[in-house]
Amino acid sequence: MLLALLLVETVDSVHPISTISSENQRRTNKLCLAEERFSPCRRFLPAGGLIGYLTDCDVSLLLTSARSEEIISAVLEPPRVYSDHLNYPAPSGSWGLKYYYAQYALCPLILVRSVCPDIFVGDFVEATSSARLEKSGLFIVVKDFGNGTLILRKRG
């Protein structure tokens, strides 16, 4: 009886293979893509230390707010807010997953969502984000890798 059950379970385990594998396939592609996207960046970034991390939603937040650095500090979340990690794994589209992939690809640098560092990595999906950010006068684009990945520097 137990054998029959175990056989059913074993055969049945073929079912989750298909669902889980395809789900992970999608996720994996993102991680593999992140590795490919960020590998050219590493040559232009410092060997270690803290750098800032910006996504599309940060750009929208920055540009809808006043343009002083104090306000930016308030808009961007401080680097250590544990509630950020509570979104983990974040729903697709939000910054959470992308952040972890970028952090993994750019290790041993530490990516923070803060305005403290001088150098930033932009991880954008929308083509207009970098132009909007540069137009705002807050950041200078140091290098655009053409795949939504940019290196930015704070103006001044």
């Binding site: 396939q25 996720r27 991680l31 997953l97 993994y104």
Partner: peptide, 12 residues
């Protein structure tokens, strides 16, 4: 093969 870098937990 589908996730050579592991899951989110392993890469984080």
């Amino acid at each position: 093969m589908a996730q050579p870098y592991g899951c989110l937990d392993s890469c984080a």
